[in-house]
Simulated assay, not measured.
Amino acid sequence: EDASLQGQKEHYHRDADKDKCTMPCEMTAKLMRDEKHSLCSNLQHTIVSYTRNTRKLIRDLIDEQQKVSEFLSSQIIELMAKVNTLSSDVQRSNSDIFSVKPMESHGKDCSDIQETLGAVSPKIPSGIYIIQPENTDHLKQVFCEMDYMEVGWTVIQRRTDGLTDFKQMWSQYLDGFGHLPGEHWLGLRQIFNIVNQRNTRFQLHVSLVSQDDTTTYASYDNFWLEDETKFFAIHLGRYAGSAGDAFRGYDQEQNQDTAPFSTSDVDNDGCSPFCTFANKAVESCSVNQNNTGWWFNQCGKANLNGSPLDQDLSTQSHIHWDTWTKNGTLVKIKSVTMKIRRVEIPNLK
């Protein structure tokens, strides 16, 4: 009995201990589950809120970037319009510097006009004059530069701002194109009429200006052209200057003296069937140099009528005078003027 009673007491104590532990453990587990659920719910809510805020921020950034891009595009368009307007204004102002209307004075060429007017006026303005070379039956307007070396120069070519397209065919190079106070080509026929007058000899002067405004020149003391049946082949006398003799180059293959004039549609450049220029095979020097006209000879070191390729407008130096170098590097040329004047022939007095 004592043993049985002792066993009952132990069983009772175990059941009592069990009853005392059951409620707190279940409550603790429930509290832990509730706390876990709350934490998960809060975390999920935080993530959703953060995601929404992030999406809104990205949308706002995209909208802001789009507004900035549209603003910059409008500014660029406006700036380009202003640049075009400014370029036109500059061209007009450059033209206004010189006389736009032809002077009343006539002569055989600008040298003849300067000699005539110099007898009555110490200062003769540069500008557009009317000339009529010997053995011609028509008048022609030309630009006369009267203030260089105090003699009259007839400008036969000028490149300054790129506003005149020198990609022209044979007929345009025959008769001339451009704007006389600005960029222009006088025309092969007119140049021929001037330099082939009787008892005259003409000097050719080439003035070059680099991109950094350095100046240089090349001069030839006897310049004349053959007639149209010989495609106005060029002839040059003795060279003088600081730019180098690019017309004759460094060897006979590069010599453009006596070369006929060529354009993309009238090819006289000597590349038959092709020649090697700048380490590549070339069939037409004119086509290779963007359809411009010049006295090419396989193709040579000079092309003052060169035009930049359409895809290289901002990088390629298009006016070629490849004997003008600095520290072994070709100088990039910004502008050029070709002009001619009469020179005295001692036997004709």
Rank of each mutant, 00 (worst) to 15 (best):
M27F: 05
K36C: 03
C25A: 07
R33W: 03
E26F: 06
D60F: 04
I58G: 02
K30M: 08
N53I: 02
K56T: 07
M32P: 00
H37Q: 08
Q44F: 03
K36V: 02
Q44R: 07
S41E: 03
D63I: 02
T54L: 15
I62W: 07
T28E: 11
L43A: 10
E35Y: 11
R59Q: 09
N53S: 08
N42G: 05
K56M: 09
D60I: 03
A29S: 09
R55E: 11
T46G: 03
S49R: 15
Q44I: 00
N42S: 15
L57K: 15
I47Q: 02
T46H: 12
L31N: 11
V48Q: 14
K56V: 10
I62E: 14
D34S: 10
D63W: 01
N53A: 04
R59K: 09
K56C: 03
R55C: 09
E35M: 07
Y50S: 14
T54S: 15
K56F: 03
L43I: 05
E35C: 08
N53P: 00
T51M: 11
Y50H: 13
R59F: 05
K30A: 13
R59G: 01
C25R: 12
T28F: 05
H37C: 03
D63Y: 04
V48P: 01
I58Q: 14
V48M: 07
Q44N: 06
L31A: 09
Q44L: 04
S49P: 01
H37L: 09
R33N: 02
A29Q: 08
S41A: 05
L39M: 06
V48L: 11
N42W: 01
I58T: 09
K36T: 04
I47M: 10
S38H: 14
S41M: 05
C40E: 08
L43P: 00
D60A: 07
C40D: 08
C25I: 12
R59W: 06
L39D: 01
I62P: 00
M32K: 06
Q44W: 01
K36F: 02
K36E: 11
D60Q: 12
Q44V: 00
S38P: 00
S49V: 08
E35V: 03
I47H: 02
T54F: 15
Q44E: 05
T28K: 05
H45W: 05
T51W: 07
S49G: 08
L57N: 15
T46C: 04
E26K: 15
T28M: 03
H45Q: 12
H45F: 03
T51L: 13
R33A: 06
S38G: 09
I47K: 02
K30R: 12
M32G: 03
T46V: 07
I58L: 13
E35P: 01
K56D: 07
K30L: 13
L43M: 07
H37V: 04
N53C: 03
T54C: 12
V48Y: 10
L43S: 13
L61I: 13
T28G: 04
K56N: 05
L31Q: 11
E35K: 14
L43G: 01
K30F: 10
L43Q: 12
I62C: 04
K36G: 06
R33D: 03
D60P: 00
M27L: 13
K30N: 12
Q44P: 00
L31G: 04
